[in-house]
């Protein structure tokens, strides 16, 4: 029974830890000289005992504030960074060995770094990758045509990369990274800096790729649109520790102890009449929008319905974008 379960997990991470030694330097010329002669190092625990499993074909969002340990974890999954302790398995391989079969199965896309040759058209970079991955020219051409159609790329493929817009360049980067048809995709902020249309195009492409090839995708992004439109499951990491692993909707309950209530009244009422129920977010005589603590919700709604002439009432969770946006800004996980 357990063997079946293990075989489904394409990514398996157990008690993963990574610590770095970084130098600490105070400002000023004296501190600079002292740091040059006698470097003070201290240990930073970037990832602390992180464990999770991902099944084949899943799209999982990996979210957390800056410096939470997302990229370090992704790099350990790719085999770029060696873990201090813990076990990682991707497609049955130990990433840090970086053997040929493993590298043929994975890809890493980084929104802030590029692999395309700056002065040449993307097509040249694609053929370099095709040669390195051992594809024939014919195979490479077919795959380029297929992926270019999915990504809506055409004339851009023959223009030097330096002449392309950021959106066009990112699409070409994706094509270069997926030419060998990997089954596991590690995407580190793939929509960084793109406009709304380009973001939506990239998301659509990733959904198509996932469906067509059954690829497993682990995605980090600060744009919640990427997460909400692509991922049904999220991993939330903060200060190196995994804080949440589960469906996106449940995360909302965890992040916010309130529910958002919108009330439309038949007659105007005083603002002060509603203050006792929770935090008022919006008030306009007939329209009230407020946050009510989850454990007081039933009592508060019953009281409101009995005390005021309610025309319409709507209860919902605060938008996830807002919640996680606040989390990213504050860097504090409740």
């Amino acid at each position: 029974m357990s063997t079946e379960k293990v075989s489904m997990n394409i990514i398996s991470v157990d008690e993963l830890c990574k610590s770095y030694r970084v130098s600490v330097k105070k400002p000023g010329i004296a501190a600079t000289l002292s740091n040059f002669l006698n470097r003070q190092l201290h240990v930073v625990e970037a990832v602390k005992r992180v464990s999770f499993n991902i099944d084949q074909g899943e799209i999982v969002g990996f979210i957390g504030p800056n410096g939470a340990g997302k990229t370090t974890t992704l790099k350990m999954l790719c085999g770029l960074v060696h873990p201090t302790s813990g076990e990682v398995s991707v497609s049955g391989h130990r990433p840090k060995e970086r053997n040929r079969d493993f590298l043929q199965e994975i890809t890493l896309v980084m929104g802030q770094k590029q692999q395309l040759i700056w002065d040449l058209p993307p097509l040249d970079s694609f053929f370099v990758n095709a040669a390195v991955y051992g594809l024939t020219k014919c195979e490479a051409k077919n795959r380029i045509d297929e992926l270019a159609a999915m990504l809506d790329l055409d004339k851009e493929l023959t223009r030097p990369v330096r002449k392309l817009s950021l959106g066009q360049r990112m699409k070409a980067e994706l094509l270069a990274a997926l030419l060998h048809r990997p089954s596991v995709l590690f995407l580190d902020e793939p929509t960084l800096g793109l406009d709304v249309n380009a973001q939506s195009r990239v998301r659509k492409f990733l959904r198509q790729y996932n469906k067509r090839y059954g690829a497993t995708i682990l995605l980090t992004s600060h744009y919640m649109g990427d997460i909400t439109s692509l991922c049904s499951r999220v991993l939330l990491i903060n200060e190196g520790s995994l804080f949440y692993d589960g469906p996106l909707e449940e995360l909302t309950g965890k992040l916010s102890p309130y529910r958002s209530v919108r009330i439309e009244l038949k007659e105007p009422h005083q603002k002060s009449s509603f203050m006792q129920y929770g935090i008022l977010e919006e008030f306009d005589e007939r329209l009230v929008r407020m946050l009510i603590p989850r454990d007081e919700l039933t009592a508060a709604i019953t009281s409101i319905l009995n005390s005021f002439p309610v025309k319409d009432l709507e209860i919902c969770d605060p938008p996830i974008e807002e919640l996680i946006g606040n989390l990213f800004q504050s860097g504090i996980v409740p």
């Binding site: 790719c78 890493l108 980084m110 770094k113 692999q115 390195v132 991955y133």
Partner: peptide, 18 residues
């Protein structure tokens, strides 16, 4: 320095050769 060594290390070819 720029971290682009990542892309080279992820290719199925000897990184020293590349």
């Amino acid at each position: 320095q720029h971290g682009t060594l990542d892309y080279i290390l992820l290719k199925p070819i000897q990184s020293q050769l590349w």
